[in-house]
């Protein structure tokens, strides 16, 4: 009897890319503020990655509207208790942060670097927000499974971190920056995020109880177990464990983490709408 909102592929992509943008940005800003000079490459890649992604996110959101030309109507109101309203504002504000941080990351002047760190420090908050609010948005709807998933926002945040870091890892590998200490720090951060993600996933399913059915035993169950838990979480861990010295294997693991992040958004959105 309840009606799904028909948030389909464009919103799956938005949730996925928004998570990466948020995760890559806050990772970059944390590395920038608390890492060493050698982590500046990670910070630059993270900032520069989040900018085009958040732009793409905005376009996806506008294109998915019933009347795209009215997208500015979201700016008529600011509803503090409404995830959709806050989210629309946050995409815009976060976009500004990614732009300024990206521009400043291209400069080598120390004063610019100091400013970049300060801006990044504040932007961490918006990165966290973008990565997690989509989960809170779903868990505050009237639809079964979504409405019961208290930890959806928390899980999306951890997944945003793991996929954001994986995306940075892949770019570092592809651009020949996968060297020394920085690579291991990235891998370590990704593993920490994935462990948190796994713990949250188990807790989410445990708390859902029977409401987890669309995810774990329905039509989408093979994709959930195989695509997210297997390919997206367990296999990357195994790969990194057995071949942690081989950069190419590390890059492959990062690619699989991205696949897992996409599958998570896909099964969560589509399992009760398809």
């Amino acid at each position: 009897m309840l009606k799904p909102p028909h948030w389909e592929m464009m919103i799956v992509w938005y949730f996925f890319l928004g998570g990466i943008a948020g995760g890559a940005y806050f990772t970059a800003a944390i590395a920038d503020n608390f890492g060493s000079a050698r982590d500046r490459g990670v910070a630059r890649v993270g900032y520069l990655l989040s900018l085009p992604l958040v732009a793409l996110c905005g376009l996806l959101l506008v294109a998915d509207l019933g009347v795209p030309t009215r997208f500015m109507n979201m700016m008529r109101v600011f509803k503090f208790s409404d995830p959709m309203s806050l989210g629309a504002w946050a995409v815009g504000v976060f976009g500004l942060f990614t732009f300024v941080s990206s521009v400043l990351s291209l400069s080598s002047s120390p004063s610019h670097a100091a400013l970049r760190r300060k801006i990044g420090f504040v932007g961490i908050f918006f990165g966290f927000f973008l990565a997690s609010y989509t989960g809170v948005l779903l868990s505050n709807s009237a639809l079964p499974f979504w409405r019961d998933a208290r930890l959806m926002g928390a899980l999306f945040l951890a997944s945003g971190a793991s996929t954001g870091i994986a995306a940075i890892t892949l770019i570092m590998f592809a651009t020949g920056q996968a060297t020394g200490d920085g690579w291991h720090k990235l891998k370590r951060a990704d593993h920490v995020s994935m462990i948190i993600e796994l713990v949250l996933l188990v807790a989410l399913i445990g708390l859902l109880g029977a409401a987890a059915k669309p995810l774990i035993s329905g039509h989408f169950a093979p994709l959930f177990w195989g695509g997210l838990v297997g390919v997206g979480l367990v296999v990357p861990f195994v790969l990194d464990f057995v071949a942690h010295r081989t950069r190419a294997v590390g890059a492959l693991a990062a690619a699989l983490i991205l696949v897992g992040g996409f599958v998570l958004r896909y099964v969560v959105l589509m399992s009760i709408q398809a």
Binding site: A31, S132, R188, V192
Partner: peptide
């Protein structure tokens, strides 16, 4: 709960990057 997750993840990433 999301803020809690952000604190834990943020701390994890921070400790990974700290010298």
């Amino acid at each position: 709960l999301s803020i809690g997750s952000a604190l834990v993840v943020g701390l994890g990433v921070l400790l990974s990057f700290r010298e």
